[in-house]
């Protein structure tokens, strides 16, 4: 089990890219932190998700 934006998800054993392809996240419009470290887009394909990992997936929204 990993956590994505606070929600438990079964994605261990997948790469970040493989996980994203199971979701509706727009890959061009997000940034990802894995266990508190930013994962550059170029590394989505080679970064493996391990049991207990925490992902934050963020994007821009309206703000002041």
């Amino acid at each position: 089990m990993i956590k994505v934006n606070g929600i438990p998800v079964e994605a261990e054993g997948k790469t970040i890219l493989e996980y994203l392809e199971t979701t509706n996240y727009d890959k061009k419009r997000i940034a990802i932190e894995r266990n508190g470290e930013i994962v550059p887009k170029a590394l989505y394909e080679s970064t493996m998700l391990n049991d207990g990992d925490t992902l934050e997936v963020v994007s821009f929204v309206g703000g002041g």
Binding site: N24, I30, F60, V61, G62
Partner: peptide, 17 residues
């Protein structure tokens, strides 16, 4: 123009950018 950063939503298809 200012923007905020928040957890991404998989439900909304519209992106402010």
């Amino acid at each position: 123009i200012t923007l905020a950063v928040r957890r991404a939503n998989t439900k909304e298809q519209e992106n402010i950018l």
